[in-house]
Amino acid sequence: MNRINQKLQEDHKLLSIYFTAGYPDINDTEKIIVDLEKSGVDFIEIGLPFSDPLADGPTIQESSTQALKNGMTTQKLFEQLQDIRSKVRIPLIIMGYFNPMLQFGVEEFCKKCQETGIDGLIIPDLPVDVYHDEYKELFEKYGLRNIFLITPQTSNERIAFIDSVSDSFIYMVSSASVTGSTSGFGQDTKAYFKRINDLNLKNLQIVGFGIKDQETFEQATEYAKGAIIGSAFIKYLNENGTSNVGEFVENVKALT
């Protein structure tokens, strides 16, 4: 069974952490992954940096720009991940924009993912319709789970389609925003989490965008299986470096 699906069966709320590969330093990838697993994170999203990340706010944009300056490339990332499965068991998801994958060759990219032990992909600018018609078979051939986003504006009909195409979890974007731009969740957002929860979808939901600490993690997971932290972790890395990433995770998970 795919490691993502296995993890989703565990009986607790799941914490996923995003970081940008090649940031703050080009060779931090393996260390960050190993330390995050050690500190009890449930999933790791490895950001493949892109020059023009449309769905991301300033924090992740800047980390991507820095990572590219540091020399990160798709090829380089796969080289860094070559032996990662001898070190960690945690589900690994690559999050990246579609153009670098297209240039790498989509099939070659999927193949490399399988070889290195990547379990899933999040590709914000590959719409579910195009995926369904052109790439689904390919992703499945290489055992990859493709994870789709929904937002408060996504219609129930489209959510049903996304649910039918998905086989892991649905990435529930907390509010209409780019990454890193909200502070706390209001009543509307909670009502939206509950509304989606009440749809009883085949795939569980994990909330992303706007989660930064223990309080927002708990709010987000009241009606969802887990939550994803990205920008807040990048900020932490920016301020504190990579020497003690466990500290960040402990602060989020303190009472859960």
């Binding site: 892109f50 020059s51 023009d52 449309l54 590219l68 490339t73 798709t74 090829q75 924009y97 579609f98 153009n99 670098p100 994958m101 297209l102 240039q103 790498f104 600018d125």
Partner: peptide, 21 residues
């Protein structure tokens, strides 16, 4: 340019071999 994706459209695009615009 080579075929790629910019601003939501698949089109000809000036980019690096790694797909950075």
């Amino acid at each position: 340019g080579k075929p790629g994706i910019i601003h939501g459209s698949k089109t000809l695009l000036m980019q690096t071999g790694d797909g950075q615009i």
